[in-house]
Design a binder for these strands. Structure first.
Lengths: 154, 154
DNA sequence: TTAAACAGGACTAAAATAGTCCTTATTTTT
DNA sequence: AAAAATAAGGACTATTTTAGTCCTGTTTAA
């Protein structure tokens, strides 16, 4: 399904919330109630985002979290990497080492390219893009995008 | 990590092997020893590929599997979908229903768009591409897929 | 000094994934 | 007709990953 983990998904929701009120400091508790995600979970994610330098934290009473950069400087690729590590569709996209495959699979180089392409796509979307309303022709767009997925079933 | 499952990875190896000797019928056993993947696992994957209409099977002695189409007609998106179901980075990319998020997350529409872009990228790579030596810079598919999502908004 | 907040890490529970195996159906060979 | 080779379908188990919670310590404002 090529799925992001739930935590990564939450992270985008949390970051979107923070971006929509950028500059302000938000306590974990506040974020939890605003997003409806349980506090311990929010807390865990926020820590990871701080470690990845996407957020800055302030300790103590009146402390909390703020974005480390403006929303247009935070890419989706960065968010995903913060939670899941390097973007890599296959094991061999990560390391240069040969995988265990008997014959030497010969498609490794191509995986690397494919992976790079996906990465570029995710790099080109920023948090600023994500909090923007869906572009105008709402209905038309919905139709367009649903067709290809459905066509996989024919 | 945005990872494909191991089985999907195996599937690409199996299909690559079959594509490199396209037209011939291959028994599961043969594929297992050629690829170094254990027979029961190979067998499981082959069945899924038949169900997804990527392979055709022949029963009985001298039976086996062949590609249902030529390698240039089999996209990576199709292979992934065969093993993992529809390509969807997030839960809400799949269904039209609102997710449980309290406030209504407001980024759902954008997820659809991102998802579509990834899907297009994977659709543009075929099995034929994958068994070719690493493409030169002018390869058509590479260029096509480098569409910046952000540009869709501007 | 106390309360509010984050930091770090350990732990548990649940879910997904990978892998194996058994039984049945079909086809070719002897 | 029997035997051998092969796929189909599904059940089952083990392992790994993921999600989620909680505890203890540290920092800071009031």
């Amino acid at each position: 399904m090529l799925r992001l983990s739930k935590l990564t998904d939450y992270a985008t929701v949390i970051l979107s919330f923070m971006a929509s009120d950028s500059g302000t400091i938000h306590a974990a508790m506040e974020i939890a109630s605003a997003t409806g995600i349980a506090l311990p979970t929010v807390s865990k994610i926020l820590k990871q985002l701080v470690n990845a330098n996407l957020l800055m934290s302030t300790r103590g009473a009146k402390g909390g979290y703020t974005l480390a950069r403006t929303p247009d400087k935070i890419s989706l690729a960065t968010m995903i990497t913060a939670l899941e590590g390097p973007i890599a569709l296959t094991e061999c996209s990560i390391s240069q080492q040969a995988c265990g495959q008997a014959t030497g699979c010969g498609i490794r180089g191509n995986w690397h390219l494919i992976n790079q392409t996906i990465h570029n796509a995710l790099e080109s979307v920023t948090l600023a893009d994500m909090i923007r309303p869906i572009p105008a022709k709402d209905a038309a767009w919905k139709q367009e995008t649903l067709i290809p997925i459905a066509s996989l079933y024919r």
